[in-house]
Amino acid sequence: MAAMKPAAFDYHAPATLAGALDLLRGEEARVLAGGQSLVPTMAFRMARPGILVDINRIPALAYAEKRDGALAIGALARHAWFETPRAGGPLGRLLAAVVRHVAHAPIRTRGTFCGSLAHADAASEWCATVLALGGRMRCASATGTREVAAEEWFQGVFTTALQPGEMLTEVRLPLLGPDWRYGFAEFSRRAGDFALAMAVAVLRVEGGVVRQARIALGGIGGTPVLAKEAALALIGAAPTDAVIATAAETAAACCDPQEDIHAPAEYRRDLVRAMTRRALRQALAA
């Protein structure tokens, strides 16, 4: 392969969020956080931003902590941080289980949680997880801030609700009480590579019966999707093997997997069935 070098750009490393937002008024400006997705696309020259706004010198964005009853994850929280639970209870353990599947250690040291949400790769573990949890995205621009729910965030292939001039400054995840359970399963051909299908399940079990359930699928189309019908199949039921099998079957039947160079649609549908079953079994194991 020919040498791959990014096209020229102007580089700024502001010390404050206000400084970064001011620079993002420029149409050609892109945020550089961990750079683990942006820099490869620049090397391929699929992205040629005229201005890079490096936010790594803004310490106020480096946090992942409980705030107002949620886990608030700032724009500079690195993947690797989540290897140690950053929240008590099931949420911290879920994120610690998922992060092991996010690329590789030397990527996790720099790549950021919010960066994954802004890049919105269909096979991103964090994107499917945030959708399953019903997280909220905080977007800031030079003119104000707003919040976007996970259900409205993912709009298409690498496309989110983020507007020009805006930056994703924080993701908020609801804390999970002790009666919540979780499961995560994905299939990829090589360790750390993009998954062909994944399932994230979070459910609340009370008195031996599933009271609430959310299942998100990733890696199968342009965006992560909620498997609403599959979650409905669980609610009000005692989580037996038969109920889990029905939910997994429903997830496979109701999803719309895409065919690509890596796998045909029907193969992905089969993986959705298997990954949903595995995630639910994990969640409901005693």
Binding site: M1, A3, M4, K5, Y11, A13, L32, G35, Q36, V39, P40, A43, F44, D54, N56, A80, H104, A105, P106, I107, T109, R110
Partner: peptide, 27 residues
């Protein structure tokens, strides 16, 4: 590979492993 897949360019930055093809020198 120059796009973060192969790991040949791994160096340590402030004690942590980093793909040096995915970080700019200016950083």
């Amino acid at each position: 590979c120059e796009h973060g897949v192969c790991g040949a360019c791994t160096v340590l930055v402030d004690g942590e492993p980093v793909r040096s093809c995915l970080m700019f020198g200016v950083q």
